[in-house]
Amino acid sequence: MGEPEPTQQSSGSDAICEFIGNLKVENDNLILALHAIENRFGYVPRQSALLLSKRFSVPLARIYEVLTFYHYFRTTPSAEHTLTICLGTSCWLHGSEKILRNSQNLLAELPPEERQRFGLSEVRCVGCCSLAPLVFAGKKVIGRLTPDKMKQIIEGLLSNRGDIS
């Protein structure tokens, strides 16, 4: 990720002021503020949500309704290595579900401290079906995926080799 770890301080009022800047305090802007926080930290820390709740006079419960409704938002920090497998129609037809299960099993076999470095998730169609099946490794798209290729990716990330392709 390369992003700084949010601290109590940086995820608090300073950070919000910095990132949402001149955003007017009105309900319609709440989601923009959440995007700004998400983009900054890779997730929305509870501290930020609490401050946003005060600043926008919106109940915290409503903020979490928004946060958990949209898959885009995260409420916990993302893992060091995120792997997002596409389960859209095209990828699914090319066996992405099997790749997902395989990956889950692979990760489950890792020792806990290594497993924690990975965040495996799924997504519905990312709009490059010609590459199906595909995975997002961090911000990198890797297409024509096979279970073997997926295994190499995970091993590569584990040994911190930058040559995944």
Binding site: L60, R62, E65, T68, T75
Partner: peptide, 19 residues
């Protein structure tokens, strides 16, 4: 009071406090 809210969506929807 806003103790309860809808968390998540679809089949995963739950009634729970914020977060």
């Amino acid at each position: 009071v806003w103790a309860l809210s809808f968390l998540n969506r679809g089949i995963h929807t739950r009634m729970a406090p914020a977060g």
